[in-house]
Design a protein around this nucleic acid. Structure first.
Length: 651
RNA sequence: GCUCACAUAGCUCAGUCGGUAGAGCACAUCCUUGGUAAGGAUGAGGUCAUCGGUUCGAUUCCGAUUGUGAGCUCCA
């Protein structure tokens, strides 16, 4: 082997490339397929177009690898920008990164884009892709880059260059007539893009700062094949089908009324029933674990909110004060001050601790109109709130108890996967937080220990703590793999101080309790909306508003149908007896669309034998079985809060 | 709050290049008595989000307001 050659190995295979060769040469030499987008050389991710730096072991990276995927999509965003520049030369470029499921590019157009423009832009992108333009990386010095982009009128790019730290390598990527300030990496040419699609158009502030100009962002995505792209678009359709706003309307669960005001939820009978069932479950599980359930008012004197610190820290999220007999009152955005007042109502002993006060407390927060979203983000909502007052020594055990409760309740609803975050204070900026180092250390280690004792993996999120203490934030994964804000548990040393609450210890001295703020479900509005999407509207038996529909084949059997329905009602089921004079197929369709778990079809055969022909909304026809047999199995399903149907096909 | 888009019957949506509107589903009545996802007929139902402007005339064009959606930002 000559000195002008480099030896590259890959698994068992090996190749020799010229000394100034690139990984494209390696690709050729090793006959890699075109799905290789990047390589790992000596463990470092490299573009295919970069030079081989020495003898090394390489690993080809395809779309399955996150880095390669991001490179491909990042190139797609450049193609988008190139297409836009070809069609609208006066447009100024913002930034255009790859994101989780695709990419976007921010533009400052002379005249705003309209949705129809996307089609035009997309077909120009396809042209650029078919031209298979090489994507070339180029290092430039700061002055040259600055001049280049200011000559092009790209003022946003110039701003970015000016903010790059001293001594950093500035790179420009060129593809044909188009050039962009960009750190890379990219795929070697535009022809590597096989399936791209532009998805939506939206506003976005320059650098996410609302004081800066609003740019127009075009979102898109890219895959290796049209089939994969289609699968992704189908998934978006599935998400749309499960949308709680759609399903809540179809299933008549809740609404938001224009006449009533934005962000305020109206729970219709069926939605209210689901909520009631969840709340009953919530109360039962809390009482079991030593919680006491309370109610507190909806308004309180402004003075109270000053004491709690809300007036200083939370004012912009609160509804304006109302004057009542010359005293200002505020609608509550949180329940904590009320629970503190209850604690404070009499002298507390260490024997009273831990004191766990729970409340399904309805709070109101002023949310900016643009952030409201169905029942997920609203202005009035009911938190499943609780505050635990305990000693420092009890803190860790209490936190474990909260985690156990949270895990149990979430599992009941079918949420088995979580991501836990430990939100701690920003070590660089301790002034932002109240309380001494010792308290913070104690709180943090208690939270950490509790997570470890429950065997929960977690990530530490610096700077995400509330001003009064560190927290555990749990995100739960739903049936589509999406993450939802779940339980949050916060340790608070601040409010006990502000309200000067104490208990008398064993030593007869006054001590300050620690406070834990915690919610398991979050809010009833958000939780039920999340459940609607998680279950795609098909609630498990115990939560279904109508659990069983009895369908007589003809009116002749309505007597038997009513008898069956009565029996089921006596057994505690929510039953609808469909005596309408439609055909059976029609009634089944109605029940299917209402997502009623069980349909019992009864006709001559059933009446004669005292049976019911059972149909499950997902499992279909289960055949006939004695009514008692159905009742026994369905009761088991109901009482165990089973997520799966437990009624088995009859003989 | 900001950018862009949208607002027609309970729901999903047509439509009017400006002359006060239509379908399917749902609803009501009647006929049909039918074995596992839509039987038939008839009927009722809309100040085309609200308020202004332009016009002989506005649901249609323009403006404002309200609400909704996609995002930015923020959060239970």
């Amino acid at each position: 082997m000559s000195q002008d050659e480099l030896r590259v190995s890959c698994g068992g295979a090996a190749a020799v490339v010229p000394k100034d060769g690139t990984y494209l040469d390696v690709k050729k030499a090793l006959s890699w397929k075109n799905d290789v987008l990047m390589v790992l050389a000596g463990g470092e991710p490299k573009e295919l177009r970069s030079k081989v730096e020495g003898d090394c072991e390489v690993v080809p990276l395809t779309f399955d690898d996150e880095r390669a995927r991001w490179a491909l999509r990042h190139t797609a965003s450049h193609v988008l920008a190139q297409a836009v520049k070809r069609l609208y030369p006066g447009v100024k470029l913002g930034i255009g990164p790859a994101i989780e499921d695709g990419f976007y590019y921010d533009f400052d157009p002379e005249t705003p884009f309209v949705p129809e423009d996307l089609e035009k832009i997309e077909s120009e992108m396809k042209k650029i892709i078919s031209e298979n333009i090489p994507v070339i990386r180029e290092e430039v010095d700061r002055e040259k880059a600055r001049k280049m982009f200011s000559d092009m009128g790209e003022t946003y790019k110039v701003e970015l260059i000016d903010e790059l730290p001293e001594g950093s390598t500035i790179t420009v990527y060129r593809q044909g007539e188009f050039a962009d300030l960009c750190a890379g990496p990219h795929v070697p040419s535009t022809g590597f893009l096989k399936a791209v699609k532009l998805l939506s158009l939206a506003g976005a502030y320059w650098r996410g700062d609302e004081k800066r100009p609003m740019l127009q962002r075009i979102y898109g995505t890219a895959f290796m094949t049209q089939d994969d792209l289609k699968a992704y678009l189908d998934k978006l359709e599935e998400v749309k089908k499960r949308d709680h706003r759609r399903l809540a309307k179809d299933l008549d669960l809740f609404s938001i009324q224009e006449e009533g005001g934005p962000g305020l939820v109206y729970w219709h009978p069926k939605g209210a029933l689901i909520r009631e069932l969840i709340e009953d479950f919530w109360r039962k599980e809390h009482r079991k674990r030593g919680y006491e359930i309370v109610y507190s008012p909806h308004i309180a004197k402004l003075e109270l909110w000053k004491t709690s610190g809300h007036w200083d820290w939370y004012r912009e999220s609160m509804y304006a004060p109302m004057a009542i007999e010359d005293v200002e009152y505020l609608l509550k955005p949180m329940n904590c001050p009320f629970h503190i007042l209850m604690f404070k109502n009499k002298t507390r002993s260490y024997r009273d601790l831990p004191m766990r006060l729970g409340e399904l407390g309805t709070v109101y927060r002023y949310e900016r109109s643009g952030v409201l979203h169905g029942a997920l983000r609203v202005r009035g909502f009911t938190q499943d709130d609780a505050h635990i007052f305990c000693t420092r020594e009890q803190l860790e055990d209490e936190l474990v108890g909260v985690l156990e409760l949270a895990q149990f309740m979430l599992a009941t609803f079918g949420y088995d996967e979580y991501e836990c975050m430990l939100s701690v204070r920003d070590p660089e900026n301790k002034a932002k937080y109240v309380g001494d180092d010792e308290s913070w250390a104690l709180a943090q280690s208690a939270l950490e220990e509790a997570l470890k004792r429950k065997g929960l993996a977690y990530k530490v999120d610096e700077g995400e703590a509330k001003f009064y203490g560190p927290a555990i934030d749990i995100k739960v994964k739903d049936a589509l793999g999406r993450l939802w804000q779940g339980p949050t548990i916060q340790v608070d040393f601040n409010n006990p101080q502000r309200f000067d609450i104490t208990y008398v210890g064993e030593d007869g001295m006054k001590h300050q309790p620690v406070m834990i703020h915690r919610t398991v479900l979050g809010s009833m509005e958000r939780f039920v909306a999340g459940l609607v999407e998680h279950y795609a509207g098909a609630f498990p038996l115990w939560l279904s508003p109508t659990q069983i529909t009895v369908i007589p084949i003809t009116e002749k059997f309505s007597g038997y149908a009513e008898k069956v329905a009565d029996t089921l009602r006596r057994e505690g089921f929510r039953v609808n007896c469909d005596l309408g004079h439609e055909k059976m197929g029609y009634k089944i369709r109605q029940a299917q669309m209402e997502k009623v778990p069980y349909m019992l079809v009864v006709g001559a055969r059933e009446e004669e034998n005292g049976t019911v022909a059972v149909r499950h909304r997902a499992g279909g026809d289960l055949g006939a079985m004695p009514l008692e047999s159905f009742v026994a199995q369905a009761k088991e399903e109901l009482d165990s809060k089973s997520l799966e149907p437990l009624v088995k096909p009859g003989a």
